[in-house]
Design a protein around this nucleic acid. Structure first.
Length: 435
DNA sequence: GCGATCAGAT
DNA sequence: CACATCTGATCGC
């Protein structure tokens, strides 16, 4: 069995302590009510939500990590078998309620696991996080950054959630007689709903299980399960479709708002020389007769004048780029701030996966010279070099899922992983193992 | 029959 | 396009 000390968002055996970044389903694959391997560290909010996700879970296993404070963990070194200490500090990841990044310090060096995160310049949460990180790293280099690389491509450009929320309120205001359906998940987007409620002075309907979550999060008077009290309803995203909206419209004029989705990503390619070969707007989404029109300007005029982040792909549905992940520019700022010696993307299952080194390798401490040396290589050769660098510079790489996979992945000239089906189910998470 | 895992859909 | 999640099929016990 592989030896290791710490797992993050990974729940198989072999570690002494386990860390959970947040409670979304793709980060808890392998966790269950009966899981009882070892202490599980998470945020206070996550601990509070835990029983609703895993009823019957042994709560005595949970350990709350406070934000911005070092915690010491007495562990056993996998190399020597002797006692060693690992320190961990949590930073708010600004992704969903309770989401954290973890900064670890130990015999393996210094490493940061971001989990899913949104590095919005305008956010006070991010401002606090920046201060904590810079202070914690002022006398120490970051050896490895495990990065949420979901949107690690210049094609992904979108506004802050504050701006996106305003766009959504504008759409609702422009439809005063309509019912409004907003697609959300079991956790996340609460700030958006609060903003809508506050701005329009209206309650928001949610389904019963979601109301329980809202109550656990401390929101008691804003949400309701009585449809008669409001025209704005937040519904599970998976129940949200063109067919649903068409059905609702036979009963009552209704529009749907999808705070995510990617038509904006396709459009964002426009005008940049088409480097990534935009597939244009005729793919899967508009299987009805929708023709990807931009939202009508008079209906959805936005404060920042950026119409690309609001779109309609059918008569009833608006898609708004309200993202809980960092856009490309934010990822850039984050890496530039930390300048890690090495990094590794935690999301390798994406069909458009690009190794973070491809765009940001030049920001990595000891690799800068190496990267300049290879600027003249063509894309294909360069990507092969990236691969090599990453494997060599990985701490405990042989026991990390990402490290194992990548050796065998094939890249096309855009850096896309082509063996998608094999990668799909591997999910997030990493084990921090032996040096 | 049950939980875990996978495939497919949204 | 891809996030997070659902349903339903299949596997192992």
């Amino acid at each position: 069995m592989e030896s290791g000390m710490i797992s993050v968002d990974k729940w198989s055996s072999g570690s002494q302590v386990y860390f959970l970044t947040h409670l979304h389903a793709d980060h808890t694959v392998g966790l269950s009510s009966k899981w009882s391997r070892a202490p599980l560290f998470c945020s206070r909010v996550t601990a509070k939500l835990f029983p609703s996700k895993f009823p019957g879970f042994d709560l005595s296993l949970l350990r709350v990590v406070e934000i911005g404070r070092w915690h010491s963990l007495p562990l056993v070194s996998p190399t020597s078998g002797s006692a060693t200490t690992v320190s961990v500090m949590a930073i708010d990841a600004n992704h969903c309620p309770g989401s954290l990044m973890y900064l670890f310090r130990g015999e393996f060096g210094c490493m940061l696991y971001t989990g899913d995160f949104r590095w919005e310049k305008s956010s006070n949460t991010v401002e606090v996080g920046r201060t904590i990180l810079l202070d914690a790293l002022k006398n120490e280099k970051l050896d490895i950054l495990y990065l949420d690389n979901t949107y690690c491509n210049p094609r992904y450009s979108f506004p802050s959630r504050e701006v996106a929320a305003k766009q959504i309120v504008d759409i609702i205001t422009a439809h005063p007689k309509h019912d409004i359906i907003i697609g959300i998940d079991s956790l996340g987007k609460e700030d958006l709903l609060l903003y809508i409620s506050r701005t329009l002075n209206i309650k928001i309907w949610v389904w019963p299980e979601r109301l329980q979550i809202m109550h656990l999060l401390g929101f008691h008077d804003i949400f309701t399960t009585k449809t008669s009290l409001t025209r704005v309803r937040a519904v599970p995203r998976y129940s949200f479709s063109i067919e649903t909206l068409e059905g609702l419209n036979t009963l009552c004029p209704t529009i749907g708002i999808m705070p995510s989705g990617l038509p904006w990503a396709v459009k964002a390619v426009k005008g940049n020389g088409n480097v990534f070969g935009s597939s244009c707007s005729t793919s899967g989404l508009n299987k009805s007769n929708g023709n990807m029109d931009f939202a009508n300007g008079s209906k959805t005029h936005e404060p920042n004048g950026d119409l690309r982040s609001v779109e309609r792909y059918c008569e009833y549905i608006y898609t708004i780029a309200y993202s809980d992940h960092s856009c490309f520019a934010e990822i850039h700022e984050f890496i530039e701030l930390l300048r890690p010696i090495s990094m590794k993307g935690i999301v390798s299952s994406s069909p458009s996966y690009i190794d973070p080194h491809y765009f940001f390798g030049h920001l990595c401490g000891t690799k800068q010279a190496f990267w300049r040396l290879h600027q003249k290589l063509d894309n294909e050769e360069r990507l092969e070099k990236v691969d090599t660098i990453e494997i060599k510079s990985t701490i405990g790489g042989t026991s990390s899922v990402a490290g194992r996979k990548r050796k065998r992945d094939q890249y096309d000239f855009l850096g896309r992983v082509s063996r998608v089906s094999l990668l799909r189910r591997l999910g997030h998470g990493v084990r921090i193992a032996d040096i």
